[in-house]
Amino acid sequence: MSSVKQELDIVESEFMQIYLHEMYSLCEGINRECKEIFREATVPFGHNLLSVSPILHSRIYSVLIYAANLKKLAFPTRHRKKNEGTGTYKLRNQRADLFEEILNELPIKEIKNSKVRNTLEHFDEYLDESNVKLDKKHNKEKLKDKHGFAAYNMAFSRWETFDRKVYPIRLYIAEEKKFYNLDWSIDIGKIDNEAKLILERLNDLELLKGKESGGLLIPLGVEQQENE
């Protein structure tokens, strides 16, 4: 009898379906939140949208969190982490290979963009940096010489809502479906479309087991033990 331990095959593993259902659920979450964002921030015909909506920004943040988790699930880092076990390291690379094959040739780009989410997670630090730029003593190209206003936690229909340039501090532009935070931006519309492409691919491949996504009851050798 061989004493060589067989490597875990992710496709044959107990939790294979959870990986797939998690991806499906994250994409559904993105689409659900984006639908509400686009509904709330509809550009009124012949008028400008100018609103303060904490709920809208909460939904945007949810989209970015879903996208971040989707990125980690489907496009994990391949280098070995400090103190990481061999089995976990190899399984993570199997997962990367698996989703690379499943999502082959899909144009997934914006979901991988993590910079704006980082500016939200470390908002205090980025806000300090921007505040320093307003100080004449510390920056020759002062923000207040370039911008008439700073818009915080707001939604505009378009940049032309004001006749002077606006500095965005968590600002959503409905016409573009883009979210701006300080010097960075992300396209919420593209994230929504990319999530739809992933859902279509999962449905086409018919990989998910179960009547609906989001929950599973997985037997862990119970039947085998009862039959012994």
Results as ranks from 00 to 15, higher is better:
Gln94Met: 03
Lys140Ser: 10
Phe75Thr: 01
Gly46Ala: 12
Pro54Trp: 13
Val116Lys: 10
Glu121Val: 15
Ala74Asn: 04
Leu106Lys: 07
Glu121His: 08
Asn131Gln: 09
Leu127Asp: 04
Gly85Tyr: 09
Arg117Phe: 06
Gly85Ser: 14
Ile65Gly: 00
His47Lys: 15
Lys136Trp: 08
Ile102Ala: 07
Leu49Glu: 08
Leu64Lys: 02
Lys115Asn: 06
Ala68Gln: 14
Lys133Tyr: 06
Thr88Gln: 08
Val132Trp: 03
Leu91Arg: 05
Glu110Trp: 08
Ser58Val: 07
Leu64Val: 01
Asp124Val: 12
Val132Ile: 13
Pro107Tyr: 15
Phe123Cys: 00
Gly87Ala: 04
Ile65Asp: 05
Asn131Ile: 12
Glu141Ala: 11
Val52Leu: 15
Arg80Asp: 06
Ile102Trp: 10
Tyr61Lys: 11
Ser53Phe: 09
Ser53Met: 06
Ile102Phe: 10
Val132Gln: 10
Tyr66Thr: 03
Lys142Asn: 13
Lys82Arg: 15
Leu56Ala: 01
Tyr126Phe: 15
Ile65Thr: 06
Ile102Val: 14
Leu98Phe: 15
Glu110Tyr: 05
Tyr126Trp: 13
Arg95His: 00
Asn69Leu: 05
Tyr61Pro: 00
Tyr61Gly: 02
Ile55Gly: 07
Leu64Phe: 03
Lys71Arg: 13
Ile102Gly: 00
Tyr66Arg: 08
Leu127Ile: 02
Leu50Arg: 07
Ser62Glu: 06
Pro54Arg: 11
Glu141Gln: 12
Ile60Met: 04
Ser130Asp: 07
Lys115Ser: 12
Lys137His: 04
Val116His: 13
Lys142Thr: 08
His79Lys: 08
His57Leu: 07
Arg59Ile: 04
Glu101Asp: 12
Phe99Asp: 03
Ile55Ser: 09
Ser130Asn: 10
Lys133Arg: 09
Lys71Ile: 01
Tyr126Val: 05
Glu100Met: 06
Leu70Lys: 00
Lys90Ile: 00
Glu100Phe: 03
Thr119Arg: 14
Ala67Glu: 11
